[in-house]
């Protein structure tokens, strides 16, 4: 059992939790994820690590309530326990293995979308700590949905884009990217993009003509998360890879996003059916 030691609402339906998981905290690196199960009847779901504190022995996760399982996680309070919290899984971001000399000569552009801002944070923080300053674009539909702005400002140069213009640049992150690269003539060696699948697809289409190396972090469906099930198959450069052991970060220009989005929806119909059943059950047995 893994205790929730802190909980904070970041935006509507988005919660941050600090989990007591000493071993995971000690081993975690930017880019990795954990498998979480809220109770004995729950699914195993992968969540990207948003931060880790070796001294406090805690790992931070940020969860948006999109389905039954994420709702269950978010309904837990400080002092409650998650049944399982296994990790860190997946390969760390490639830059953690790079010689510091080389790394410090590189320019990074991070593009974060919605709840994907959380897993971008430990990467920018790690680079900042190792003397690499990065530009970070954070995008959301509207001002109220922006998360991790203050945290990110402490470790990177933040640019904000909202679809409705309630904060920062008005428009999509891709438009702001064009503004920075084509408008202001900024140069980057690599773009790292984490967010909804559809956003990552369009960010990759944007950077392709610039020949800008682009890394994306995929949130495929998983069961075990350790390579055993193959549910997280993704086509990268025509080869089938497993997101859990070969990723979760891949060369975005080689990822087949249309297939990846389709595969993400594999159990959508059933989830809806399940929810209907549950609500039905509530009406029958409630009160």
């Amino acid at each position: 059992m893994f205790k929730i030691v802190e909980k904070r609402k970041l935006a509507e339906n988005i919660y941050e939790m600090k989990i007591a998981a000493e071993r995971v905290a000690r081993a975690a690196l930017p880019g990795q994820f954990v498998i979480v199960r809220s109770d004995e009847s729950s699914e195993r779901i992968p969540l990207t690590i948003a931060d880790y504190d070796v001294e406090a022995g805690t790992v931070t996760i940020v969860t948006q309530t999109i389905g039954h399982s994420t709702k269950k996680i978010c309904s837990l309070e400080v002092g409650d326990c998650l049944a399982d919290f296994a990790g860190p899984l997946g390969r760390p971001s490639e830059f953690v293995h790079m010689p510091l000399e080389e790394l410090r000569s590189r320019k990074y552009l991070f593009v974060a979308g919605g709840v994907g801002t959380a897993p971008v944070y430990p990467q920018v923080k790690w680079l900042h700590k190792h003397g690499v300053e990065c530009d970070v674009i954070i995008g959301a539909k509207t001002k109220d949905m922006l998360i991790y702005i203050d945290e990110m400002r402490k470790v990177g140069n933040v640019h904000i884009a909202t679809d409705d213009g309630t904060e920062g640049f008005k428009g999509m992150v891709t438009a702001l990217m064009k503004e920075l690269v084509e408008g202001e003539g900024r140069k980057y060696d690599e773009c790292v993009c984490i967010g909804p699948m559809i956003m990552m697809k369009f960010v990759c289409l944007t950077t392709l003509p610039w020949n800008m190396q682009t890394t994306v972090s995929l949130n495929a469906l998983m069961v075990d998360g350790t390579g055993m099930c193959g549910a997280c198959r993704v086509s990268v450069g025509g080869k089938t890879l497993f997101t859990c052991v070969d990723g979760p970060e891949f060369d975005g220009h080689k990822v087949d996003f249309d297939e990846a989005m389709r595969r993400q929806a594999m159990y959508k119909n059933q989830e809806r059916l399940d929810n209907d059943n549950r609500e039905h059950k509530c009406k029958c047995y409630g009160e």
Binding site: G227, C229, G230, A231, T240, E259, R262, R263
Partner: peptide, 26 residues
């Protein structure tokens, strides 16, 4: 234990509804 499930490498293997026995049984 054994490890990663094998696939045939044939066309259509990443369609929705194709899965490894490991995934199904798990």
């Amino acid at each position: 234990g054994a490890g990663l499930p094998r696939f045939m490498g044939i066309e259509g293997e990443n369609l929705n509804g194709v899965l490894s026995a490991n995934e199904f049984l798990t």
